[in-house]
Amino acid sequence: MKKKSFNIKNIAKISGFGVSTVSRVINNHPDVSDKTREKILKVIKEYNYIPNNSARNLKKTETNNIGLLVKGIYNPFFSEIVQIIENRINEAGYSMIIHYKYSDINDIGSAIQFIKEKRLKGLIYLGGDFNHEDDEQLKYIDTPIVITSPNIIEEVYRKTFSSIVIENEESAYDAVNYLIELGHKDIGVIAAEIKGNSIGELRLNGYKRALKENDIEILEDYIKVGDFTFESGFREMNKLLDDRRDISAVFSVSDIMAIGAAKAILKRGLKIPEDISIIGFDGIEYSHYFHPSISTIEQPKEQFAHKSIDILIDLIDKKIEHQHIVLDTKLLKRKSCKHI
């Protein structure tokens, strides 16, 4: 079969699936099983097929637009980064198009669709999760992508995008170890999204490692799971207090949930930090102005923003190859933790 005559019908025939199914895979529709998608992508790779309506379109970038794709709209941590990025994009002479993604389904598919629809010059993705299943799709994209503050699994073919991350497990370990240094042993945790190598799981792993290395027993009823909202922090803290009234400290894997948890503690007539110490994660502005101000692990928001746009523009100008940067976090000791 000559390469010039190779088309979507050939892919369908070789893979054993219908033309419509192959088309849905090429266009990154979510309504295709992982097994089917894998088989079709394998054929596409084997025959070096370049889909007319996906990869080729991505190469014909004619706009001056840089896209900003944000996973979730409710996290003020991202809103502070967005403002800096927008200013930098404008200063560099580009236009910014922002899109918020609410679903947890198919992060890479959302990125590709956004690039294709808006014919983007480059893309910054705040908060997406990419894994090894995305390798084949990423290889078809010439548009530069910078993924900021996500969890990126090491097996991903990382020559196809740039990333700026933190060490989630190590930073969570530092937070819990600080509580232990203050004399706390009965330490609860409000976790989130406990699934294969997610940010929530990595931060929970840091909690567990700190307890283990200090010979403190890990108890399942000390572990509650929220969903990165004020409401879930409030709800799970109440469950924690109902199950374990002996706790002296709580680690929340986000400041948003830490504020919700603090509200639950205060509503029960307990005092922070006199009765219960609490520490969060992210370093959002709200945590500073809460009373008492909440101790937290501060992520370097300004560095995330500036490095994201610096790398993206250099990639657009073909000055550099893809970069992968790990930034340091900082423990902010405030009024919500005390020595016992």
Rank of each mutant, 00 (worst) to 15 (best):
R203V: 06
L202M: 14
D135E: 06
F230P: 13
G233W: 03
L266T: 14
N90H: 12
K42I: 00
E117C: 05
E193H: 15
G226T: 04
D227A: 10
I284Q: 06
N151D: 06
Y47F: 15
D186L: 03
K208N: 04
D328Q: 14
F6C: 13
N10I: 00
N57V: 08
E136R: 13
E117K: 13
V165L: 11
N106Y: 05
K4C: 04
D34F: 01
G196N: 15
G280R: 10
S336K: 09
A258I: 14
S79F: 09
E86A: 11
N10R: 06
V22E: 04
D227F: 02
I218K: 05
S252D: 10
Y289G: 03
V25L: 08
I297D: 03
Y173F: 15
I294M: 07
I84H: 04
L120Y: 05
K271M: 06
C337I: 14
S171W: 04
N28F: 02
V165R: 14
K42H: 09
I199K: 02
T229N: 07
Y125E: 00
K319C: 00
E274D: 13
I199V: 10
S15R: 02
I223T: 11
R245G: 08
F114N: 12
E46P: 10
K319H: 00
L332Q: 11
K195C: 07
V19M: 15
I325V: 06
L327Q: 08
E62R: 04
K60R: 04
Y140K: 14
N151A: 12
S5F: 03
L219T: 00
K185N: 15
Q137C: 07
H324R: 10
Y222W: 09
Y289H: 05
K9M: 06
I108M: 07
I14E: 13
Q303K: 15
K59I: 02
F304P: 13
K301T: 13
L211K: 11
N57F: 03
K42E: 05
I8R: 15
P51V: 07
S295N: 10
E80M: 07
I199F: 00
G269Q: 09
E117I: 09
D104T: 13
S248M: 02
Y173P: 11
T61A: 11
S293F: 00
P30E: 08
G283I: 14
K39D: 00
I108D: 01
G122N: 08
F230I: 14
P76M: 05
T148E: 03
L312H: 00
V326H: 07
I187E: 05
H306Y: 10
S232H: 12
E193T: 13
E321W: 00
D104H: 08
N87L: 07
A192Q: 12
H291W: 13
Y125M: 04
D186Y: 02
L211I: 09
F77Q: 13
G16K: 01
S171M: 13
D142E: 08
I194W: 02
Y173Q: 15
S277F: 02
T329V: 13
K71G: 07
Y207W: 04
R88P: 03
V176M: 02
D142G: 02
I190Y: 04
L240Q: 10
Q83Y: 12
K121G: 06
I98R: 09
I40Y: 08
D227W: 01
K45W: 00
K301N: 12
L58Q: 05
